[in-house]
Amino acid sequence: MKSLTLLALTALTALSSALAAPTLVVYSAQGYDQDVVDAFQKATGIETKLVDLSTGPLVAKVEAEKQNPQWGLVWFDGAEAMRSLADQGLLLKGWTPQVNWNAMGKALLPTDKSYIPVSATFAGVLVVNTKVVPADKAPRSWRDLLKPEYKGLVGMNNPSISGPTYPLVAGVLQAQGGEAGGKKYFEQLKANGLHVFDTNGVTLKALYSGAIGIAIVQSSAGIGAVLKKEPVQLAYPEPVSLLPGSIGINAKASPEVVAAAKKFVEFVLSPEGQKVMLSGDTGGDSNYYPLLEGLKPSAAVTPLIGIKYQSVDPTVWGSREGEINTWFTNTIVR
């Protein structure tokens, strides 16, 4: 029995040493990350290892490793968490690749250049179940949601539980003229029978089953539902908020790793890299708006024409996240 343990431990040690010393370690929450990593490795010959997790555990991992970071770069959606990592001094500052940004890209670039936006989606769009709310009666603006005809039909996630929901709440607050006006808006929404679910998954399930008719969720989730031929359509109330997908480089990494990470960012923002990103996860994350001049999103993505969007400043809203989430939980959820 004891020798068996020993055997197991030996095997595990052998295994782990065989896996040791990756050159560039990528922590990512993007659906296409494996394809990008494979393509990058092929193009540059730099050995790259991927840790793919959803944003929550990914950021938790980065924060827990603070004393001794194991990652070369980190890549996920949402500027607030990235801002928080930058403010803790975990991200390399002052570097951006030399690329031809479009207007959206320029709007998302942080002034201290502590991370690099590489894609964008919308934090909150309206996904309408056309069996519950007929297409011609779908709401078009944030104010529409307060109408009696939508009473009890609107659902969204709790920002203090669902990571990507805070940018949406912050965006609505900003669009309603700041924190005070925005909070009042949510209180009215609550008065009109707003359902708050804990996560995206639960909200969408409620939408598909017809328990609610309108879900306020991230645009990529809505496009995914359309592609899956669920009976839904999307509406873009004015203004929708941008949700950038960004890459941050480890400030404490060795020069070799930093150089490799910079190459990775350059590859991601090259035509070749963008091609991989646009095709790597067609049912999900590939449905983003590119940030480079002259590049078009995939066919499933609603063209930008006619959509009014805003950039939510993470330096303003990032630090308020805890307070606003607590308010939301205590006031709107209960």
């Binding site: 659906g31 049912g283 994350d285």
Partner: peptide, 9 residues
């Protein structure tokens, strides 16, 4: 977890 995108239940 990764092979399921966008809440494809």
């Amino acid at each position: 977890l990764k092979s399921v995108h966008n809440f494809d239940f």
